[in-house]
Design a binder for these strands. Structure first.
Length: 523
RNA sequence: GGCGCCGUAGCCAAGUGGCUAAGGCAGCGGAUUGCAAAUCCGCCAUCGUCGGUUCGACUCCGACCGGCGCCUCCA
């Protein structure tokens, strides 16, 4: 990788929405040229569902765009592998907490991998950071922001003068009974940093006796260990704003006397569309079944299906395109219908890629495009109208991404780009003439590759439908059928030709006639 | 009750105080095709309702109606 001189390198102006200030802000890093990002990962006690994938996909794209724009980005996603829910679930399943955590972590990683989320630099586990967590809590106790109580340790919200600043709430307005441990807390809003172990529960030794970390503390401790006490971006789902992120801020800023993160970014939540099919929908009442509900949050409590099961019905690329077609802060309308539409939209790209491969012999997926946005090198190769159009298009794409990572607009420019390239191939007659100069087409496709890569789209070719011995057999049969049909067509026996095509169509095999031959594909 | 978000075409979904209100899916018309498919061209919205601010608002403010999230585990 080329070394960039950070002192002279100029970075684009990026705006991002900060939950803390409720507005877009100019992006300025703590350390020039470097970005530290922390995304709250899963508590690994059940298989991950689609909701768990939103953050990783969004932040993967954000990282790609920042790296493309010249920053040196470190991205951390934690794994919370110790928690009440893990203890309960592992008991139910008669296995150790560690074994359960390992199984679910693997599931999570497999899902990320299927989606091409590969930019995560470190995935720390809470149980690997118990020592740091204990020191963190001890520091808070020492500064009198926390107090031990009968083997537990609680954060004393009353001592934190700006508690509630992330979610604009004051202690008076905060409801809550304080839960089962209310009698040990000074205030109902106090939350556990350390929980005393009951017999048979996994535990670690601590100054307050054997126990385990409370929920929020692992993120404070691990982000500090890996990114420092003040890093740039902290993200997560909107449902984590309170109490999780509010409490992280309380812990970290009380201990360190500096902002925990400059920017707090929160992605919208998945909405499940019911049979009604609309996002707006009608109110819940007792007669509604789950299917009748118009739009409700997808979560464990609504029985979201494991992501790996979703993958048996839908291609990861279609899921990813759907996620990126909505702005990250908006709720995403999710379901079989939207996924189907997304898959159909995807085909426009993939048909162009195969068209390109047919013409030039190059696989789109192995094209090696520029991975830095510096200068206008990408478009200097084009001349005249194509050049102007492509310049405008690239600018629209980059401006959208610079403006709070507006992937919806970025994706829209890509659709325009597909149309432009198809038109270019048509108008230049590239399909018809044998002897051709494909330089401009190659340039256009390289730019497409550059832009889709920064979104994290089309990283790997679609799975081949026909592989192995069966695939070979199918392929040779199809070649034979196509040859026979071709003879029928030459003999003007269109009844036979159409019979073949229609019958194949019923078997979900699609034929496409072109001037120089016939393609087949499985629908 | 407190905090916050949303309501744009048949469906999904960007966006802007005034210039053609992106893009996708579906639909319709055309070019192309033996016919299809694919591709290309064209068509398809006045922005929940009512007031206000303004020379001008879909975009700002208010009210109302409808929907959603958080305040409890949650990505």
């Amino acid at each position: 990788m080329a070394e960039i001189n950070q002192s002279t390198h100029s970075f684009p102006n990026i705006e991002l929405y900060n939950t803390l200030s409720h507005q877009k802000e100019h992006f300025k890093t703590v350390v020039p040229g470097k970005v530290g990002m922390y995304l709250c990962g899963p508590t690994v006690y059940k298989p991950s569902h689609i909701g768990h994938m939103v953050g990783p996909v969004i932040f993967d794209t954000i990282k790609r765009h920042l790296v493309y724009s010249g920053w040196d980005v470190t991205w951390v996603v934690n794994i919370t592998d110790v928690d009440d829910k893990l203890i309960t679930e592992s008991k139910n399943r008669g296995m150790s907490m560690a074994a359960l955590a390992e199984e679910m972590t693997t599931d999570y990683l497999d899902n990320l991998s299927a989606l091409g989320v590969d930019g995560i630099d470190t995935m720390p586990k809470a149980t690997d950071h118990i020592e740091g967590i204990i020191q963190f809590i001890a520091g808070l106790v020492e500064k009198d922001f926390a107090y031990p109580a009968d083997g537990d340790v609680y954060f004393d919200v009353a001592k934190d003068k700006d508690y509630g600043k992330l979610t604009n709430r004051t202690l008076e307005k905060t409801q809550g009974e304080g839960g089962a441990t209310a009698d040990r807390k000074r205030s109902a809003a106090d939350f556990a940093l350390w929980k005393k172990a009951k017999s048979g529960e996994p535990s670690w030794e601590s100054p307050w006796g054997p126990g385990r970390p409370g929920w929020h503390i692992e993120c404070s401790a691990m982000s500090e260990a890996l990114l420092g006490s003040h890093f740039d971006i902290h993200g997560g789902g909107l449902d984590l704003v309170f109490p999780h992120h509010e409490n992280e801020i309380a812990q970290s800023e009380s201990l360190h006397d500096c902002p925990m993160a400059t920017y707090w970014m929160h992605n919208g939540l998945m909405q499940a569309a019911g049979a009604a099919g609309k996002v707006g929908g009608r109110p819940r009442d007792s007669s509604d079944t789950l299917d009748d509900l118009a739009a409700t949050k997808i979560s464990k409590s609504t029985g979201a299906e494991p992501f790996r099961e979703l993958l048996t019905r839908h291609r990861p690329e279609a899921i990813k395109l759907l996620l990126l077609s909505t702005h990250y802060r908006s709720p995403i309308h999710f379901g079989e219908e939207p996924l189907g539409e997304s898959a159909r939209a995807l085909e426009a790209f993939e048909r162009l890629f195969s068209r390109y491969e047919r013409l030039c012999g190059n696989s789109y997926y192995t094209l090696s495009a520029r991975n830095r946005r510096d200068g206008n090198a990408a478009i200097s190769d084009f001349h005249g109208r194509a050049g102007e159009h492509v310049t405008a298009l690239r600018n629209r794409f980059l401006e959208a991404m610079d403006d709070d990572f507006n992937t919806a607009i970025a994706v829209a420019t890509l659709f325009d780009f597909v149309r432009f390239i198809n038109k270019f191939i048509d108008s230049e007659g590239l399909e018809k003439k044998a002897d051709h100069d494909f330089e401009t087409l190659n340039g256009l496709m390289l730019l497409m590759r550059e832009l889709t890569s920064t979104l994290g789209l089309f990283l790997t070719p679609p799975a081949e439908v026909s592989t192995g011995a069966d695939g070979k057999l199918l392929d040779s049969l199809m070649q034979l059928i196509i040859e026979l049909r071709s003879r029928a067509r030459q003999a003007k026996d269109f009844a036979t030709a159409d019979l073949i095509r229609d019958t194949l169509n019923e078997a979900e095999i699609q034929l496409e006639d072109r001037a120089d031959g016939t393609d087949w594909s499985i629908k």
